[in-house]
Amino acid sequence: MKRLLLILSLVVMILFPSAGFAKDTKESMEITENEKRAGFTVQAVLPENQINDRVSFYHLLMQPEQKQTIEVKIMNSSADKQTYKVEVINAATNKNGLITYDERDKKPDKSMTLPINEVAKPKNKEVSVEAYSEGKAEIDIHLPKDAFQGILLGGVRISLKSDDEEEESQGMAVKNTYGYAIGLVLTEQDFAPIYGETELKLTKLQPEIDYGSKVLEASIQNPYPEAMQNLTAEGKIVRKGQEKAIAKNKQEKVKIAPNSVFPFQIDWGMQEVSAGEYTFIGKVKGETKTWNFKEDFTITREIAKKMNQQTAFRIFIPSWWTTSFYVMGTATAVVTAWLVIRFVKRTKGREKREEE
């Protein structure tokens, strides 16, 4: 009997070999911003029309047609003279549910009638500061004559100009630059809150590839001039008419910038995307309101094929491997049957001899 168990164990090991994944233990050679000092710091110089002087960002009460120049201190703590880029960038919302001030090339949402970078502009796009010295960047603000409601939100970004900047602009190099962003909030009503929960809308569903992953991106729009915070967003993909989730996602502590879109994503994972009719079921819960979304969408054969082919995480099974598997499986089964029959015959023969 022990011999039989040993034989069967060997057969199982042949048919179902253990699979392992190699772990990438190579450490990243990239030095993060936290591991290397930028060599400078910045500080907002808050003007008299600052609404809240207990914060470190600009929150200014303005009037229609008002002109004003605000200053940002730049303290160079390095031993070299440094040059800094000065930008004003519209607030945006990224897929992680964070308000960002670095998406300079992103087109404003159609609900944004007055982008902040159209009324607030750097006086000089570059500022140089001597070693161990203090300099300043100036931002000119000029509001239109027509009053606006709510808030305008953006960021004053100060970043170290790289020596290889010209090469980078030509696509010859990729290099991170160190920088700081100071929030800039403009309003014409002293009672206008920065955060609110007026309305959210689902404006678009888009199956696509994002950094090698198959995702469904749900564009959740905040069409009002107020930011949102402490939101919980969750959603799932189901076959149309069914309830079982094919894929799902949940994000907490989500923030959404005014007049912007939160690109909420659901990752399909390793499974193949099939053509067909689907339904997105989503919910965003705030402190006082909850928004429910449900919308059907179609994945065509062309889209499914494109998503499956372009994903960075694909499992390829060569046809020869499948053929070999079946051949080996059949051969193993035959050998196993022969060994079992032989073992049974030997056992019976031994028992017969013992009886005699």
Rank of each mutant, 00 (worst) to 15 (best):
A120D: 06
V185C: 02
G20R: 10
I51L: 15
P318L: 08
Q50R: 07
Y326K: 08
K175P: 01
G135H: 06
P223Q: 06
A38G: 15
T347N: 12
P258A: 07
E27N: 07
S260K: 03
I194F: 01
E87C: 00
I237R: 01
T279H: 00
Q63A: 09
E272K: 14
E71C: 01
T330L: 13
A333S: 14
R239Y: 06
S18I: 14
I303F: 00
H59G: 00
K145R: 13
G155L: 01
F40G: 03
M172W: 12
Q68D: 06
I315P: 00
D190S: 14
I31P: 03
E226Y: 13
T322L: 14
Q309K: 11
S274M: 11
N259L: 14
T198E: 15
E87D: 12
P115D: 05
N76I: 06
A38Q: 11
K240A: 06
V45I: 15
V12Y: 13
P17N: 11
K175M: 11
I51N: 00
H59M: 04
P122Q: 09
A79T: 12
I116L: 09
H142A: 15
A44P: 05
S324G: 10
K110D: 13
A92W: 04
I220L: 10
V327S: 09
K145L: 08
